[in-house]
Simulated scan of single mutants.
Amino acid sequence: MEPLVDIVIEDARWEALGLDALADKAARGVLAELGLGAEGFMLCVMGCDDARIMELNTDFRAKAKPTNVLSWPSEERGAEDDGAAPDLPEAGDDEMPEELGDIAIAYETCAAEAAEQGKSMVDHVTHLLVHGTLHLLGFDHIREKDAALMEGCEISILAKMGLANPYD
């Protein structure tokens, strides 16, 4: 059985936090919530620092500043109608899992946000990994009904993990 999440650590602080276990838990929680099993799927999560995520944010979004998390879906899965469910992928197999895409997450920004919001780093990072994984699956928050759908999924997934509503 292949692992669900391929982890790339560019900043050693992520190892100490246990990014690999957090990413696996988040991805499995998202897939379970959407009625997809974890088998036959793969995604990549890179734990980096603010300098690296700023480069990525500049290159891919033309925003020359750090951010907490970025995601790159392997394909467009978003729904055309605001508030409609995305087109979910079918699982691959052990030899050729369905690649969902890539996520990058920045340590300093996450730590600052967690402190500012009075949350543990683990809880905040778990939320951001759930958020990023949902993006890989076609969820978004640009349109109002899409945002409500995505936030509802996040709240439900995090509650099943024993975490509080991040939007309260």
Rank of each mutant, 00 (worst) to 15 (best):
E2A: 09
E2W: 07
I7R: 03
I9C: 07
D11W: 02
R13I: 01
W14M: 06
W14G: 06
E15S: 14
G18Y: 04
A21C: 01
A21I: 05
A23D: 08
K25F: 00
K25R: 15
K25E: 15
A26D: 06
V30L: 05
V30G: 03
L31W: 09
L31C: 08
A32Y: 00
E33Q: 15
G35T: 06
G37R: 11
A38M: 08
E39P: 00
G40E: 09
F41V: 08
M42T: 10
L43P: 01
C44M: 15
C44Y: 12
V45F: 09
C48Q: 02
D49A: 12
D50N: 15
D50T: 02
A51P: 00
I53P: 07
M54L: 14
E55T: 13
E55K: 13
E55N: 11
N57A: 04
N57G: 04
T58L: 12
T58K: 12
T58H: 11
D59W: 02
D59A: 12
A64I: 07
A64Q: 12
K65R: 15
P66L: 06
V69F: 00
L70S: 04
S71T: 06
P73N: 05
R77A: 09
D81E: 15
G83H: 01
G83K: 04
G83W: 00
A84E: 12
A85C: 03
P86N: 01
D87V: 11
D87I: 09
D87E: 13
E90Y: 06
E90S: 11
E90G: 10
D93L: 05
D93M: 03
E95I: 06
E95C: 07
P97D: 08
E99F: 14
L100Q: 05
L100S: 03
L100R: 03
G101F: 10
D102N: 10
I103C: 08
I103R: 08
I105T: 12
A106H: 05
A106N: 05
E108L: 03
T109S: 12
T109F: 12
C110A: 08
A111T: 09
A111I: 06
A112H: 07
A114R: 03
A114P: 05
A115S: 14
E116N: 10
E116R: 13
Q117C: 08
Q117I: 00
G118A: 11
G118N: 13
S120A: 06
S120K: 01
V122H: 12
H124P: 00
V125D: 06
T126F: 00
T126S: 14
H127A: 10
H127E: 14
L129Y: 02
L129K: 04
V130N: 03
H131P: 03
H131V: 02
G132Q: 09
L136W: 08
G138M: 08
D140A: 15
D140G: 15
D140L: 09
H141L: 04
I142P: 01
I142T: 12
R143Y: 07
R143C: 02
E144F: 08
E144A: 13
E144D: 13
E144Q: 11
D146P: 01
D146W: 06
M150P: 03
M150A: 07
G152W: 05
G152F: 04
C153I: 00
C153H: 11
E154H: 03
S156C: 05
S156M: 02
I157V: 10
I157R: 00
L158H: 04
G162R: 09
G162D: 10
L163P: 06
A164E: 15
P166V: 09
P166R: 11
Y167N: 05
D168R: 11
D168A: 14
D168H: 11
D168K: 09
